[in-house]
């Protein structure tokens, strides 16, 4: 696919089957070499920047868990001051915890001010770096170490927070979801994002073999199933208007759930599966995901 020299190089320490590593490489390669990245603390930061090695071939900075968007805002202001803003892309990236939980305030400020940055959320649906704790983007029913299953618990009791909606209500000029399962679509969206000036949000579904409990060779299949069940709608908004969705022939959610240990406990609980199926149905309805029968 990309035979040129990558801006994110091999030798990093991501786990086998890590979707985030591939997604991150495609994001920076698609953004190009005139890009500065700020990275919140998390898996991606840890597996790419362990001194004295670095996987990054663009200027890259990590400060803290929650402030990458504020650091990126400072960089954007400095580039404007230097008169270099037009020629340089700024990306702020984080995991789901760094985006939707602890980093949300800084993101909100950056978006509200109309900062010309692309915020990328690598959504692996838990605090995987610290050992699989629940985040605001952990889906309903998932077992994590802080939403464990038990006699009084079916796993995570809370629905996934809708970050794209939060981004849209900030007036983000470009809001999209993407996935490891459809990489060409991901590349297209990063390139598209940088043709639009203003705050942009891209949320990439990144299955995690370790945290979700599946064999590394299943990452691709699980990514696709998340989309095909309707649980992870692939959508694209420009200036607040929905301009594209990935159409699906809906697959029952069990097909997705049964491949992952984090959902194993609900496979024999039809009422729980029904709740998750309803989430998928709501998505299918809301975004018009169902492909027309030919």
């Amino acid at each position: 696919m990309m035979m040129k020299e990558h801006l994110f190089i091999s030798g990093h320490t991501a786990c086998p089957g890590c979707a985030q590593a591939t997604a991150a490489r495609l994001v920076v390669d698609s953004a190009g070499k005139n890009t500065i990245i700020t990275n919140n603390t998390g898996c991606l930061e840890v597996f790419t920047s362990r001194y004295p090695e670095s996987a990054w071939r663009v200027p890259w900075i990590h400060s803290l868990f929650e402030n990458a968007a504020a650091v990126a805002s400072g960089i954007e202001a400095a580039l404007r001051y230097l008169g270099k803003k037009e020629s340089i892309n700024v990306i702020t990236q984080a995991g789901d915890g760094g985006t939707a939980d602890i980093g949300l305030q800084a993101l909100s400020g950056a978006w509200e001010r109309g900062t010309d940055i692309l915020s990328v959320c690598y959504d692996n649906e838990a605090y995987e770096n610290t050992g699989v704790q629940r985040s605001g983007l952990t889906p309903y029913g998932a077992h994590t170490t802080t939403s464990p299953i038990g006699a009084y618990s079916i796993g995570n009791p809370i629905n996934k927070k809708s970050m794209p909606d939060i981004a849209l209500s900030h007036g983000c000029v470009y809001v999209a979801t993407a996935t490891f399962g459809f990489l060409q679509d991901l590349i297209r969206k990063v390139k598209k994002a940088f043709t639009i000036k203003g705050p942009k949000y891209l949320q990439i579904h990144c299955p995690c073999p370790l945290g979700w409990g599946y064999e590394p060779n299943l990452t691709y299949r699980i990514s696709k199933l998340a989309v095909e069940t309707g649980l992870y709608p692939i959508v694209e908004y420009e200036y607040g208007k929905l301009i594209s969705v990935r159409k699906i022939k809906p697959t029952p959610v069990e097909e997705y759930l049964k491949l992952q240990r984090r959902f194993r406990h609900i496979l024999d609980k039809p009422e729980q599966i029904k709740i998750i199926q309803e989430t998928a149905n709501t998505n299918i309805e809301r975004y018009g995901l169902k492909a027309e029968e030919v």
Partner: peptide, 8 residues
Amino acid sequence: PLTLGFLA
């Protein structure tokens, strides 16, 4: 391009 804020 430099990497700033590495893990030590």
